[in-house]
Amino acid sequence: MTTSPSSATTRGRPSDLWTGLALLLIAAAMAGGALQFPLRGTYAGVKNAWYVSPALFPLIVATCLFLLAVTLIVTTVRSGVLADRSSLASGLAGEGDVVLIAGIIAAFVVGFVPRVDFVVAGVFFLLAFTLAFHVHEPRVAKLALGAFFGTTLVLLLMAGLGLTPVVRTAAAAIVDATVLLVAAVTFVAARAMTTDATARHRLRQCLAVALATPLLLGIIFKFLLLVPLPREGLVVVALETVYYAIRGAF
């Protein structure tokens, strides 16, 4: 679906039928789960009756959701959009970019954030993300994403084998440094692929954004807003050393 939301009809769309059915399932599962909760009898010292049960509210919500889903299905079937052959093709057609963007963010959060120094992780994330979308060179995009998702896989594999090093150890610093190195190599390779001036200019913009943003955010959050970063490895520890050196000088 590449059209804007303005193409929306006022009578729903075929995909509503499927979401309606999915909602029915969700509501049924929710109600089924709620029936397992203590419905009567005393729990945790609280005198229990139907109206005190932890199941009361989930059951109300599930019932409403069920009725709403039925309404949605009935409206969709009645409106006749299903008969309209041409509209059947629309709906949520799989588009590469959507999966890609969601994938980049998910890989960053699941693979990098818990295991790599936040600044290092941020640099690689922004580099891959901007190279993929800002440079407009399919080969560069492929390379950047390949390196990024590849690194994610390696990190997850290491985690699966229980090889993620404890934070603030030499082993953790080596992992951080390796990730940074992979990011640097990716950039150098991307640069070698591009020849025209516009692409090179955009490439430089990507690098600037990817290097400056995580570093600035890291410094602001860690030292100004006193919000600890998710993982404080190589770069954060280096920043700390500089910070204490400066503070110690005064």
Binding site: F125, L126, Q205, L229
Partner: peptide, 15 residues
């Protein structure tokens, strides 16, 4: 440009 700005927004959203 959105292609530079939104990745930054994504990083901010995570943090």
């Amino acid at each position: 440009p959105a292609t530079l700005f939104l990745p930054i927004v994504a990083l901010l959203a995570v943090l």
